[in-house]
């Protein structure tokens, strides 16, 4: 693989609070090429915080430090707020869990996506409309002309998430973070949305960070997986080898999930070892 798209070394995110400092991410190091990288963990593992830190979205009083945080030729650690605004949307983007909260409820879908084009690509009104329609088609929305003129509440969950993906990808970013993009969707819709994401990532040669709590989805969708626990990356492995994972936490997580394939009288529970955080 050529030079990685993203290089992160010793990323730390901490939030000062009344009871002392909470370290949400501890010394996380990883790289991302033009591939699908999964980050798995339970709530509080720091997986979403890691994603937000990569987009410069940790707001006061959170503190982000790292030895290295490079995106292509840009040093993310030296970015000012206006640099971030240049990067976000244009070169890096994020799809979130619930389209209900990420789309503006009082503006039409087409207008919102078109605005992204005009803002980041400097497209003309007409060009923006064409790109928007093409993008809606690319996310397999059956009649883009109709959806263009709809408001977010008129779309189903799966459609909304597609529109969201369309909006995030219309400026053709190099790198996309998807934070639980399918958790609010039904299983059958989930796979359709994943397929769309998969095609777009492959066709456009993007790097994707896929954040999820669902081991099954991550192991079947991604190329590589990072397992986070308490802010630390405890294990990194190829997605297809996840069942061979060595870290006791990863193993316990796999054994704790009830599965159709294995029948267990009792599910394994996770016995947490404080040494995992050392």
């Amino acid at each position: 693989m050529s030079a990685p798209l993203l290089t992160v070394e010793d990323l730390n995110v901490s939030f000062p609070g009344r009871g002392g400092i909470t370290r949400a991410v501890r010394n996380a190091s990883f790289t991302l090429g033009r591939e699908r990288l999964g980050i798995v963990g339970e709530s509080g593992s720091g997986k979403s915080t890691t994603g937000r830190a990569l987009l410069g979205l940790i707001s006061h009083p959170g503190v982000v430090t790292a030895k290295t945080m490079r995106f292509g030729s840009d040093d993310l650690l030296a970015c000012t707020e206006s640099d971030w605004q240049q990067l976000r949307g244009r070169r890096m983007s994020m799809v979130m869990q619930d389209p209900k909260y990420s789309l503006n409820p009082v503006r039409k879908i087409g207008q919102q996506i078109g605005e992204t084009c005009r803002l980041h690509l400097g497209s003309s009104r007409k060009d923006a409309e064409q790109r928007t329609l093409a993008m809606l088609e690319a996310v397999k929305i059956r009649n883009p002309d109709m959806v263009y003129h709809l408001y977010p509440h008129q779309l189903s969950g799966g459609m909304g998430q597609r529109a969201m993906i369309a909006m995030m990808l219309v400026a053709e970013p190099d790198f996309l973070i998807a934070d639980e993009p399918t958790s609010a969707l039904d299983v059958t819709v989930q796979n359709e949305v994943l397929r769309i994401l998969d095609d777009l990532v492959r066709d456009r040669g993007m790097g994707l960070i896929f954040i999820s709590h669902n081991l099954t989805i991550v192991s079947s969708f991604c190329d590589r997986v990072l397992i986070m626990y308490g802010g630390k990356i405890v294990e990194e492995c190829a997605a297809k080898d996840l069942h061979k994972a060595r870290h006791p936490y990863t193993r316990a997580l796999i054994a704790a999930a009830p599965s159709l394939d294995v029948q267990r009288a009792e599910l394994a529970t996770v016995t947490r070892d404080p040494e995992w955080l050392l």
Binding site: H213, L215, A252, A256, P258
Partner: peptide
Amino acid sequence: LDVSVQAEILNLLS
């Protein structure tokens, strides 16, 4: 609930 907590609750229910 998280997977590990889910396992505990499902075991409790059984």
